[in-house]
């Protein structure tokens, strides 16, 4: 299936690979991914900020209804991750579903998101894994 567009994936590489968020110069709030104007106050005066790479699981879900290109990796652990300055929804990896707990500390890792059979495109991005002790 040719779902992903190479141009679209290429355009988003910097903020996806490096977790770059938008930060509003007016109200000071951060948001991810970076938008054209602040989603909170509407100001167009934005700069960029690199997000912390360690956060906390605010909530998670074990997803079995995965779309076609991800059928093999079902179930997927989806997390609502709190990075302090903002939150994001992302996959949680390198842990068994039964071992995930609310409030667990997680860190960003660079991972493959999808392999598109139609376009031959391999899509990369950030996922999160539990912070290892010691």
């Amino acid at each position: 299936m040719d779902w992903w567009s190479p141009a679209r994936v290429w355009r988003s590489r910097v903020y996806r690979y490096r977790l770059i968020a938008g930060r509003c110069k007016s109200c000071g709030r951060a948001h991810y991914p970076p938008a054209n104007a602040c989603p909170y106050c509407g100001s167009r005066g934005l700069d960029n900020v690199e997000l912390p790479r360690v956060g906390r699981i605010l909530s998670y879900s074990i997803v079995y209804t995965t779309p076609f290109e991800d059928k093999d990796k079902s179930p997927v652990i989806l997390g609502l991750i709190d990075l302090g300055v903002t939150r994001l929804v992302a996959e949680i990896v390198d842990v068994k579903p039964e071992d995930v707990k609310m409030g667990d500390r997680v860190e960003a890792v660079f991972r493959r998101i999808s392999v598109d059979g139609g376009t031959g495109l391999i899509v990369y991005g950030i996922k999160f894994r539990p912070v290892r002790m010691g």
Partner: peptide, 30 residues
């Protein structure tokens, strides 16, 4: 499920395999 995931934001949540109900699952546990 893939098509339904496009009801969600393709630039944020739906970049990942949210499937049918992934985001709802997060909210339910929360």
């Amino acid at each position: 499920y893939r098509n339904l995931s496009m009801l969600y934001d393709s630039e944020s949540d739906a970049f990942y395999s949210i499937g049918l109900g992934g985001v709802a699952g997060l909210l339910m546990r929360l």
